[in-house]
Design a protein around this nucleic acid. Sequence first.
DNA 1: AACTGGCGTGAGAACCGTTCTCAACTGCTG
DNA 2: CAGCAGTTGAGAACGGTTCTCACGCCAGTT
Lengths: 148, 148
Amino acid sequence: MTDPEPTHDIEAVFREKGIPFTRQRRLIWEFFAGADRAATIGEAADALRGDGVGQATVYRAVILLSDLGLLARVQDRRGEICYTAPTIGHSHPLICGVCRRVVRFDGDGDVKELEARLSAATGFSIYGHHLEVYGICPDCRRDGGAGG
Amino acid sequence: MTDPEPTHDIEAVFREKGIPFTRQRRLIWEFFAGADRAATIGEAADALRGDGVGQATVYRAVILLSDLGLLARVQDRRGEICYTAPTIGHSHPLICGVCRRVVRFDGDGDVKELEARLSAATGFSIYGHHLEVYGICPDCRRDGGAGG
DNA sequence: AACTGGCGTGAGAACCGTTCTCAACTGCTG
DNA sequence: CAGCAGTTGAGAACGGTTCTCACGCCAGTT
Ligand SMILES: [Mn+2]
Ligand SMILES: [Mn+2]
Ligand SMILES: [Zn+2]
Ligand SMILES: [Zn+2]
């Protein structure tokens, strides 16, 4: 459970791959990276409408950022699809079920053994996993739901 | 990683709660329980259309079965929502990314320690988790994708 | 400075999975 | 048989996501 390294220098990632880092992409990135909790695409689109960012562009940018590993899809307890950043380096989210605040952790030490046993028992060759932990953050516990 | 107990006696679950176990609900249950791999609601509806099961009924039954804990929602690697049974007793799915075959396991021993550490480190009170493991099953590995 | 080609963008339409509506039906009870 | 509560199916409605296409932007060229 080491703290994963935070995400930095997104522009460098784009530059490296020769992908333009446009005004819209910056705003969309900042929306997700600046939040400490997971947000839906709809929420991002609503928030950025005033800044002249079209809905289609938000969808496209989220796909792009996800492909680049700069955004991770998670689902809240009700199954709603949200996105959260940063996610550079492998990590998993601990999500507050009330306010969707996300704390990232690296839990692979715990999963690796399990995967080895599973592989041996089933013959599957394992290539990945999806682990999310749900809880209530201290703030939400204290004030019963308003949550930051 | 103990094998979880298989699901049995769904009729009893329904009877106990006073919920009618109709012809349609039986067919829908059998569709998911009889498959060894996760399926989407659309696939179930397509398969049962010929048996006079309406699409709305499939949606309603899947919600009902999920609420009763008789069906679990999983997502395949592309994020598609599928459902899989049986799921009586807590378990997690190991999913073949090619053919969606599901093998269930109980990995909570591995996750429990992690949760304790997370709780101590963050102050979150943890109430749940979502763990799926992805792999390629022996069949799909052998014949390169047809997968049973 | 004008031109050009390629990509990114936004408004709105199209699409499609999911939910809703409502009348018919089913299985009970008296 | 009448009454009632719950279930069902066809189709309409809904809403999130994707697509279309004209336009804007920028780098490179002349
Ligand atoms: Mn991991
Ligand atoms: Mn578990
Ligand atoms: Zn919270
Ligand atoms: Zn397979």
